[in-house]
Write a protein that binds this DNA or RNA. Structure first.
Lengths: 337, 337
DNA sequence: ACTGTTTTAGACACCGTTATCAATTTGATG
DNA sequence: CATCAAATTGATAACGGTGTCTAAAACAGT
């Protein structure tokens, strides 16, 4: 049985193909009687419109491309899943495009995919969403896009973000509530907007709770295990070492566990450690790491909704922009002894 | 500047559109003079064919769908990247479709994507590639597919696999070469073909090196951290505990580290631990875990090549089928004391 | 030079849908 | 009931390529 076409539906419903098309596209000016006939025929034939033909005629592809450059597989996969489910729901396809945000070829690589296939819109994850060249390219080609967790927000494209500052604030307050006063902090990669928001939340919590920020307790990492390790060594080799360390992501938190093990520092008895992102490793390590979980799936879902509105040139203000994170208390934290 | 079409190229090259099409498709019977003219015009206009139009006319979509149901984000992402790079090279798009191999809706979910969009072929990862219903569905719809690491191989579709048995054999031999004779083994999920191959390699190595397999040293896990933990407890609570444990994946190996830490068993001094898959956690934990790395990227690349050959009804025997794994020695193993 | 065969090139139809526009029906108004 | 506006419908032409088929050109053999 060959796949049914609009013509088949038209024949069965005894109307013209254009009428079928009208019904399928929710266009006005079709009598309910005919609408019912068409719907019945569509159901009877199990008819599905051919996206290729629709795209060709309508100058659109129903393809949304997810651009990412992020070393965290768990995060990416969750993002993909969230975006994908919403795309499917709305009849779009999700094209994935991993790239390297440090590469000089980044722009070229994106440009080439816009040439070899057509896409209705892009989703940019951080740090790509703060890349001016990239945004200029998309603006120039007039391709709609939406952003996830941008740092710079001066652009009229839709975006979503997690409330990282608030989460970091809460996490720091939690550590303080456990009695910690000497709280170290390992910053993330400066290219990421999240880095600054998390640090700000930490700062604000200290201030808010009447503690002073000690520069010696703040180290600059790059979100990798290796940088986390060296920062942890610096923090823990000081004379007056911190009793708690807040790492800007879980990889760096895991590295603290390594350094602590080598230095025979007991976690959480002698040192509390917290991370960020709820990466898989935070559960696969002992002690499991107290961390912050972003509602990635939901954010991805929403950003797709906004992007599709944007593509259709409809307002997208009805959807949420800021999403709250969740503190996940595990075994790497305990009251200060 | 609007995108160039084949008509523009034809006008510039002073030939008919059909001739341009011929040149672009490497069809015979075009004089070199005209070929050059066409190529020059294509270059001058930076012309790219519209895949939608090509697909519509040719009854193909240039879409390959990667179907996976696998809890290991690192593995999936690597797979995606490998498949994607080859797809791009050959002018195909990669559609991703995560699904749950335990779900009763699996077949329905796959069936629905075949209806809402058209795909030229599927790539099935384990354990999906051993799902008879799924294979029956694709066969019935006459959609070509290729498989990655299938257990059952009785199908004429192309596949690739890693030489897991050999790798497990080598890894076990490595442990024996360190002086270990009491080597525990934690099996993986029985639905996965890899589970049996890895166990067989372990068995064969013991036999080969003159050791007898002790059933008490073999536990059934499910590839998860939790099952790894309970298996590790069983193994290590025995009177005569093993001095080395081979876990069928890194998650379960990480769980052994947790249990060992709780039982004050020193790794690697008192217990050597090895895993499988080179998951991110194997490097983000201390001690880092000795493991086996599959050439996933290369396998994905090859399976796409084979699938495209299959789609074009060309022979695919020229490509490799079996891929060798690599032992990665890290810090969780040491000579038996 | 004159066939017959093979290459080479182009005209045209077609893939499945939607946009345009004109034709028809319906409803409203005087 | 005639007249005009609005709502409803369908015929036809696109969208941008490729398949089919035919015509023209090139070549070979008498």
């Amino acid at each position: 049985m060959a796949k049914a076409t609009i013509k088949d539906v038209a024949r069965v419903a005894e109307v013209s193909v254009k009428t079928v098309s009208r019904v399928l596209n929710d266009e006005p000016n079709v009598r309910p009687v005919l609408q019912d006939k068409v719907h019945a025929a569509v159901k009877a034939l199990d008819f599905k419109r051919n996206p290729l033909a629709r795209g060709l005629r309508g100058q659109q592809s129903f393809i949304i491309t997810l651009l990412y450059s992020n070393p965290n597989p768990g995060y990416i996969l969750e993002l993909q899943n969230g975006a994908l489910s919403q795309c499917i729901e709305q009849g779009y396809n999700l094209q994935i495009h991993p790239c390297d945000h440090n590469s000089a070829d980044l722009i070229k690589s994106v440009e080439s995919i816009t040439q070899y296939s057509t896409q209705d819109g892009f989703i940019l994850t951080h740090p790509l969403c703060d890349n001016k060249e990239l945004i200029a390219l998309l603006d120039e080609k007039n391709i709609p896009f939406a952003r996830i967790s941008p740092f710079v927000r001066e652009h009229d494209s839709p975006y979503v973000m997690s409330n990282d500052e608030e989460a970091a604030f809460e996490m720091t307050k939690y550590l303080i509530s456990l009695g910690h006063t000497k709280i170290g902090f390992i910053k993330g990669h400066p290219d990421f907007g999240a880095t600054h928001k998390r640090y700000k939340g930490y700062q604000r919590a200290l201030e808010n709770m009447g503690l002073t920020l000690d520069e010696d307790y703040v180290k600059q990492g790059m979100f990798t295990f290796e940088t986390g390790e060296s920062c942890a060594r610096q923090l823990l080799n000081q004379e007056s070492r911190p009793t708690a360390i807040f790492a800007s992501n879980d990889y760096m938190a895991a590295a603290i566990l390594k350094v602590a093990a080598q230095m025979k520092i007991n976690i959480p008895a002698d040192l509390s450690v917290v991370g960020y992102d709820d990466a898989p490793v935070s559960q696969q390590i002992w002690p499991s790491i107290t961390t912050v979980k972003q509602p990635i799936n939901q954010m991805a879902n929403t950003v797709v909704k906004k992007l599709i509105k944007r593509i259709k040139k409809q307002p997208f203000e009805e959807f949420d922009t800021e999403f709250d994170c969740e503190l996940i208390i595990r075994n790497s934290t305990s009251p200060c002894s």
